[in-house]
C-alpha cells in the first residue's frame, strides 16, 4: 500500500458495469464459499498497545467461554450440517488451534476443508509489529498449517482484522494468492503488491454471522433470510457478471442450538438452487488467476487517468 497517503492504493477503480464476465465452471453464476473461523482466543493474553483483547478484566468468563463453545460443541454441529449439504469449509484459522485443539483441525482437514491463516491467536494483533515480527507470524502460519494438515496456505485474513501497511506485500512475497481483508467488491480482483499476484477474495463483513447477530441483532431466522436474499440476488446478477458470495461463520454463534436449524435451511436452499458453484476460496482464487485476472487488469486500464 501507499503508506500515509489518503488513498492506500490497494487496487484500481473499476465500476460494476461493463466488466468482462467472470465465467465459473459448468456455467454457474455465483461462486459460493463458506468460511468457518476456527479460532483460539487466549484467556489472559498480553496487551497490544493499540487494541485491548477482552473488554473486561481477565478472565472475561462470558466472552472467553462463548468462544470456547466453538471448539467443544459448535464446530462439530456446524461441520456436520455443512457436510450433509455438500459444503466444504475454507477455514480462517488461528493457527495455534493446531496445537490447542488438533482434533478440530484434523476433523476439518479430513472433510476436505481448505485452511488459510487468521494469525496465531485471535487475541494477538498485528498492530505495531515491525517487518521481522510480521514475517515471523506469516512463517509460523505457513509452517504450522503445513505440519498439521499437509496443506500450504494460499490466503490470509488478518488476525482479528488487524493489519500493517506491509501485510499485502508480505503475504504475496510468501506466495499467497488471496487476501480476505478487502471489502470493496462482489467479485475477485487484482491487489497492488510489490511482487507476485494477489487477489482480493470477497469475504463479507455484512453477512458475517457476527455482524448479523451482534451488529444488526438479527434473530436466527432473520439472519437465514438475509443469507438467502444475498444469495438470490448474487446468483441472479451473476448470470451477467459472475459473482462471489462468502458466508463467514463462527461456530460459537451459528453452532448454537437456536441458530443451526434456520442456517441449515440456507444451505439446503443454495445446494438445491443449481446456480451455485459451491467451492473453496483457494479454488476461486486459482480459477480467477487463470481466467479473469488479466482481463480485470486490462479492464482497469480503461479507467486509468492519463
Amino acid at each position: 500500500m501507499r503508506e500515509g497517503e489518503k488513498d492506500p492504493g490497494l487496487y484500481d477503480f473499476r465500476p460494476y458495469r461493463d466488466r468482462p464476465k467472470l465465467e465459473w465452471p459448468d456455467g454457474k453464476t455465483v461462486a459460493v464459499w463458506v468460511s468457518p473461523n476456527l479460532e483460539f482466543y487466549e484467556i489472559d493474553p498480553p496487551a497490544n498497545p493499540q487494541r485491548k483483547s477482552w473488554t473486561r478484566p481477565h478472565p472475561d468468563v462470558v466472552s472467553y467461554g462463548h468462544r470456547d463453545y466453538a471448539n467443544r460443541i459448535g464446530h462439530w454441529r456446524m461441520a456436520e450440517v455443512m457436510e450433509k449439504h455438500g459444503f466444504k469449509g475454507s477455514v480462517s484459522l488461528s493457527v495455534a488451534l493446531c496445537q490447542h485443539h488438533p482434533d478440530v483441525v484434523a476433523n476439518a482437514n479430513a472433510l476436505g476443508w481448505e485452511f488459510f491463516s487468521h494469525g496465531i491467536y485471535n487475541t494477538r494483533y498485528s498492530y505495531g509489529m515491525d517487518e521481522a515480527q510480521e514475517r515471523a507470524i506469516i512463517e509460523d502460519s505457513i509452517r504450522t498449517v503445513r505440519e498439521a494438515t499437509g496443506q500450504t496456505i494460499k490466503g490470509w485474513l488478518a488476525p482479528a482484522l488487524t493489519h500493517t501497511p506491509r501485510t499485502m506485500d508480505l503475504i504475496a512475497e510468501y506466495g499467497m494468492t488471496y487476501t480476505c481483508d478487502l471489502y470493496h467488491d462482489d467479485q475477485p480482483g487484482p491487489v497492488h503488491v510489490k511482487q507476485g499476484r494477489l487477489v482480493s477474495m470477497p469475504y463479507s463483513i455484512e453477512v458475517n454471522d457476527h455482524y448479523g447477530f451482534f451488529v444488526y441483532n438479527m434473530s436466527p431466522r432473520e439472519y437465514a433470510d438475509t443469507l438467502i436474499r444475498q444469495y438470490d440476488r448474487l446468483a441472479a446478477e451473476g448470470a451477467a457478471s459472475g459473482t462471489v458470495m462468502c458466508i463467514p461463520l463462527h461456530s460459537y454463534l451459528i453452532g448454537q442450538p437456536h441458530r443451526i436449524g434456520p442456517f441449515e435451511e440456507v444451505l439446503r436452499h443454495i445446494a438445491a438452487d443449481g446456480r451455485a458453484w459451491i467451492t473453496r476460496s483457494g479454488d476461486i482464487a486459482d480459477h480467477f488467476l487463470a481466467t479473469g485476472y488479466d482481463a480485470a487488469v486490462a479492464d482497469a486500464a480503461r479507467y486509468a487517468k492519463a
Binding site: N48, R72, Q133, A136
Partner: peptide, 28 residues
C-alpha cells in the same frame, strides 16, 4: 514501530486449554 518481543512468545501454546480449570472436551 516494534512490539515487545514477548508479544510473539506463546508460553501456553500446547495441546488443550491455556488454563487449568477444565480440560478440552470436544463433543464427539
Amino acid at each position: 514501530m516494534t512490539l515487545d518481543p514477548a508479544y510473539l512468545e506463546y508460553p501456553k501454546r500446547r495441546e488443550g486449554m491455556d488454563h487449568g480449570l477444565y480440560p478440552a472436551a470436544p463433543m464427539p
